[in-house]
Amino acid sequence: MSREIKFILNGNPICIAIEEHWTLLYLLREKLGLTGTKEGCGRGECGACTVLVDGLAINSCLYFAVETDGKNILTIEGLAAEDGSLHPLQKSFIENGGIQCGFCTPGMILSAKALLDENPRPTETDIKQALAGNLCRCTGYVQIIESIEAVVDKRIEDINVVVRETGDSD
């Protein structure tokens, strides 16, 4: 059955007609064109689809879109500031080698954000736990963990980010 839902998506209120059996992941990727949220398994086993719902990291592949009614959703596309400047976590992942193929990255960064919002001074164990549901095949996690630690230690200052004007990498 279709119904209308209202929620805040990356800071903007939206109102949209959806089908009740859509997952949030489907809504984001297929209907709203927000392809930054990835599908790695569709079964809650990989975390590539992680988004924040009212600040909590959830698997959007196991979350019905209809349940976002009235909630505040943050996806990777909404993390940078309005003027395009990157969130410290994004900067840190870029600067510290937290990104290789990048498929796990949006989910990783959002899981990390949920953690830091809740606990600004996490230990290494806290960090590992927060990322435990996000699989990564490329990095062995080490530089991802370091990327988050760098934000915790406020080691992110001026960075070597290479920003090309063209901005596409496909």
Binding site: G44, G47, T50, L56, A57, I58, A114
Partner: peptide, 9 residues
């Protein structure tokens, strides 16, 4: 499961 994800849902 995983602390981050199963736990919040």
């Amino acid at each position: 499961g995983a602390p981050s994800i199963q736990h919040f849902s």
